[in-house]
């Protein structure tokens, strides 16, 4: 039995400890919003927040989330209403086919929370999202939406991420995700 906090509520699952968090969320917790794009931590479609940090849930065995807080796209709204970030994604055309959108939103939510009301620069947003692949938008509208949400949030005095809470202790999954993202960034630099 593995217990964790999922989108603000306590959750217990009886699954093999090495089952991927991605599959536990989709199959055992009936939250199919988190998507699988590659299964190897490259595309970021399966991104979720683990104790406030973005991780690729396809790389995290569920045993690693014992006692942790997990936030998925389903937990990003504000009491049933879309957050400023979600609203900006709709209004500015940042979601096209929508398959990368959950992961993008989760990653952007972490960025906005860390920005604490400051509007991150275009480069900062691009760097933060470099581990999330999108094939539809060319990224411009996603970057614009994240910054617009930050501007809106700085006006409202709150980040548009109710589900994302204060940063927790570092966990193995987080480190792995960071590695993966760094690798991706490096790779993209390497290849031009």
């Amino acid at each position: 039995m593995i217990e964790f906090v999922l989108n603000g509520r306590g959750r217990r699952v009886r699954v093999p400890p090495m089952k991927r968090l991605l599959d536990v969320l989709r199959e055992d917790c009936s939250l199919p919003g988190t998507k699988e794009g590659c299964g190897e931590g490259e595309c970021g479609a399966c991104s979720v927040l683990l104790d406030g940090r973005t991780v690729c849930s396809c790389l995290v065995p569920v045993v690693q989330v014992r006692g942790a807080r997990v936030v998925t796209v389903e937990g990003l709204d504000r009491g049933g209403r879309p957050s400023a970030l979600q609203r900006a994604f709709i209004d500015l055309g940042a979601a096209q086919c929508g398959i990368c959108t959950p992961g993008m939103l989760v990653t952007a939510a972490e960025l906005l929370r860390h920005a604490r009301g400051r509007v991150p620069s275009e480069e900062e947003v691009r760097e933060a999202l470099a581990g999330n692949l999108c094939r539809c938008t060319g990224y411009q509208k996603i970057v614009d939406a994240v910054r617009a949400a930050a501007r809106g949030a700085s006006r409202d005095g709150a980040a548009g991420t109710s589900g994302a809470r204060a940063p927790g202790r570092s966990r193995a999954g987080t480190a792995r995700a960071k590695r993966s993202r760094t690798a991706r960034t490096k790779r993209s630099r390497r290849r031009g």
Binding site: C38, E40, A130, L133, G138, Q140, V143, T185, S188
Partner: peptide
Amino acid sequence: HQLTNYIIPTSMDASPI
């Protein structure tokens, strides 16, 4: 045949448009 080695543009490969 993997995203590890078939490279599509990331947000950092794409420039502002």
